[in-house]
Every structure is written in structure tokens, then in C-alpha cells.
Amino acid sequence: MKNYLIKKIAPKLFLTFALILGLSMVSRADVIRLTVKEDLASCTGVAPMTCMQVKYKNSKNWELFYSQINGFKYEAGYRYVLLVNRTKRKNVPADASAYIYTLKKVVKKQKMQTQTSPWDFVVKHKWKLIQMNGVAQSNSPVYFTFDSANKRIAGKSGCNNFFGGFERNGNSLSFKQMGSTMMACSDELNKLEHQFLTAIGNQAFTYDVADQTLNLYQNNKLVLMFGTMQ
């Protein structure tokens, strides 16, 4: 009788144990609401790339989103409101997000007004140096903006501010009358600043905008690459 009961109960106990073990290995998914911006932004992971810009439920500003959302097909020019399942990973691989994101529902998809030309996009944004003479510039302090109405450029070349004028004709862009402040800097910033101002100062380039980056060329060679800043 005893052996009979053991044989009858054992499969049920095994099934219960298996279910408990399986549940313990899978994290519970949280449902979060994300607003996805209509354009991408430059970001740096293992290498320079582009990321979606999102707002969470309590976000005031757009935040860079370094992960992918499984099942979501992003289309530039549209702003999305999404419900997303967010599951925490048990063992997080190197250089990977702590979460897995999976689309639950597209709540809203809205067509947004797009820029009429690449140059309209250029003058709208602040640009951060991400590559110079083929060398990636991670966490670079160098950035600038264009004042299209007055044909002026201004920004930071390291620890100093720089400024000057520019001329644009089609896809040609030239800089002139460049200058900067003269604050004391570290040797590292001095070197970066000298390289950047030499590369851009009173120089002529052709330019294009690709994958949310502003690229400056000389003799068909990429000299400077900039990404958009918040």
C-alpha cells in the first residue's frame, strides 16, 4: 500500500517541483509605457551608433535607449506610444542591457513634421565630436552649434570656447575667421583642442548627414564626424 501511494504521488510532486523551479528561473515581466521620439540620436556603445530617444512615464526629457524592443519596427518620422514588457535578465552578458524589452501594444503612432532639407536638420541641433581623422572620440567635450541667420558657429573646443563664421553652398561648407578663448587647460585637453582647431579652423569641406551624424570630408576622405546632443 505504501509503495502504491508513493508511485501515485511521486509524479505529481515532480511536476509541482518542476513548475516551481521553472518559475524561479524566469523573472516577472513589468509592463511599462514608453514614448518613442520621431528621430534617432547619436550615442556611443561599443562604438558610435544611433539610438532611439524615449520618455518613460515620469520623464521630463528625452533619454537615449540603448536596447532593442523585440517585435517593434521603428519608422523614422513617427512618434510612438508603446506598452512594453520589461523582463530583468538573470545573467546579464557583458555590454548588454539588464532588461529584455518586448512589444505588448502600439497605443499610438503619430506622423510628425519632418525637416525640409538636411541643412534644416543641421542647424536645429547641437553637434558633438565623435570621430576625428579616423579616431573615435569617446566622451568628447568638443561641440558646437550653427547660427544660420548670422552665419556664425560657436561651441567648445576642449576647455576653451571657440567661434567663427561659415559659408555654405550646396553641400560645401567652409569656416573662416576662427578664434577661441585662452584659458589654461590640461595637457590632454590642450592636445585635443589643438588637433580639433587645426582640423576645422579656416578649412573648407563637403558635408552630408547620414544616420543622424554630420560628416565633414576633404578630398573624399572623412575628417570629422559629429553626433547630435540633447
Rank of each mutant, 00 (worst) to 15 (best):
I200R: 02
L197C: 03
M183F: 04
K191Q: 14
L173C: 02
S172I: 15
E193T: 08
S180A: 14
A204Q: 10
T181K: 01
S186V: 05
A199R: 07
N190Y: 04
F196R: 00
Q195E: 14
M183H: 02
A184V: 11
L189D: 05
Q195A: 15
G179Y: 00
S180L: 06
I200E: 05
L192S: 08
L192R: 08
F196Y: 10
E188L: 11
T198F: 07
M178P: 00
A199H: 07
L197D: 03
S174M: 08
A184L: 09
C185T: 09
N190K: 07
A199Q: 08
D187V: 13
A184D: 04
K191R: 13
L189N: 07
F196G: 02
M183T: 13
N171D: 15
A184P: 00
T181W: 00
L192W: 02
S186R: 00
M182I: 15
Q177W: 04
M182G: 05
Q203I: 09
N190C: 05
S180R: 03
L189M: 09
A204G: 10
L189F: 04
N190W: 01
G201S: 13
Q177C: 03
Q203E: 11
K191F: 12
N202A: 13
S174H: 05
G179T: 08
E188D: 09
N171W: 14
Q203T: 10
S172Y: 12
S174F: 05
K191Y: 11
N202G: 07
S172G: 12
M182C: 07
G179C: 07
S172K: 13
C185I: 12
A204W: 01
G179I: 05
Q195G: 02
H194K: 14
T198A: 12
A204E: 10
S172W: 08
A204N: 06
K176E: 11
L192N: 07
M183Q: 10
E188Y: 03
S172T: 15
D187I: 11
M183V: 14
S174T: 11
Q203L: 06
Q203N: 12
C185F: 04
F175Q: 00
Q203W: 09
G201I: 07
I200H: 01
S186D: 00
T181V: 06
E193G: 03
Q195K: 10
S174W: 04
S172D: 14
N190H: 04
F175R: 00
M178H: 04
E193D: 07
S172E: 15
S174R: 06
C185Q: 02
M182Y: 03
F196H: 05
S180F: 06
S180T: 07
